[in-house]
Amino acid sequence: MLARTADNLFWLARAMERADYIARTIEATLRLEYLPKTEGEKTGEWEGALNAAGAYDSFIEAHGDLDEENAVEYLTFDRSNPSSICNCLENARTAGRAVRTALTAETWTAINDAWLELKRFEASHRFSRPMDRVALTRFLDYVKKASLDFDGSCYRTMLRNDAYWFNRLGIFIERADNTARLLDVKYHLLLPSTEQIGGSLDYFQWVAILRAVSAATAYHWVYRDRVKPWLIADLLILKRAMPRSLISCYESIDRALDSLARDDGRSGLAQRHARAMHARLERASMTQIFQGGLHEFITAFIEDNARLSSTISEQYLFT
C-alpha cells in the first residue's frame, strides 16, 4: 500500500473518532451544567470540557471570555479550532477523498453522507446562532451516529488487510488518547480520598464522565455497585471488557500492529513499543497507580501514546 494512503487512513480514523469524543464531551458537560448550583458557584465545567478536548489554551487565546456559548461554538463549528467537530469531519472527508480507492463504497458513503449532513447543519447554523439546546442535541446525536456509521462500515465491509489495520490503529490510538485526557481533567475527583457521601456534586461529575465514554450502564454491569470514583478509574484504565479502557485500546493496537507485521514479515520499533505499553498495563494495579500518582501515570501514558503514533509514521514511511 502507498505510504500516503496508510497515512490518510490513519488520520481519517483519528478524525472520526475525535469528532465522536468531542460530541460526547459536550453532552456530558451540558448535563453537568443542568445540575442545581449553590449561589455564585462556578463549577468550571466548560474549562474542563475544553481541557478534555485539548483546546483550552487555544480557546483562551482566541476568545478570552469563557462561557457556554463560546465554548460550544469553539468545539463544534469554529473553523479556527483544528479539533472542532466541523474540522474533524472536514479533514476526515478530505483524507477519505484522497484515499477513495482504499475505502469500500460503504465506508466512503458513510464519510461523505456525514459531510453532506454537516454542510446542512452548517448552513442552518449560520442563520440561527447561537444554537439552542434542542438543535445542539440533534447535532451531537448526528455526530455520534456518523462516527458509528463509519466505524461499523469499516468493521463490516473492509478486507482485513493493511488498510483495515491502519484504520484500526488510528481509531484506537485516538481513543486511548481521548480516554486518558478525560481522566486527566477529572483525576482529582477520582482519587480515593475524595470519596463523599452520595448526592454530592462530585457524584454527578463521576456519572457524567461515565456518560462521556458511554459507560454508565457498563459500570453497573461490571461492578454491581454504586458509582465510586476509584472504580471509574479502574474501569477506564484496566478493565479489558470496557471498549474505551486504555488496556482494551492497547489490546487492539497490539493486534493491529501484529497483523501488519505478519502481512509484511517485518516487525519494528512500533510493534515493540506497543507491546511494552500493553504489557505495562497488564501488570499494573490500581493500588500501584494511585501510589505512583494518577496524574503522573496518565501524563506519562499520553506521551507514550503520542510517541507510538510518531513511531508508526516513521516505520511506515508516512514522513
Partner: peptide, 20 residues
C-alpha cells in the same frame, strides 16, 4: 494505486512508489 507525484521517486532511472 492512485498516486500523486510525491508518492513516486526515481532512482537509477527506475520509478518506484513509496509503500508501507
Amino acid at each position: 494505486e492512485l498516486v500523486e507525484g510525491r508518492d513516486l521517486f526515481v532512482e537509477d532511472d527506475q520509478v518506484f512508489m513509496r509503500t508501507t
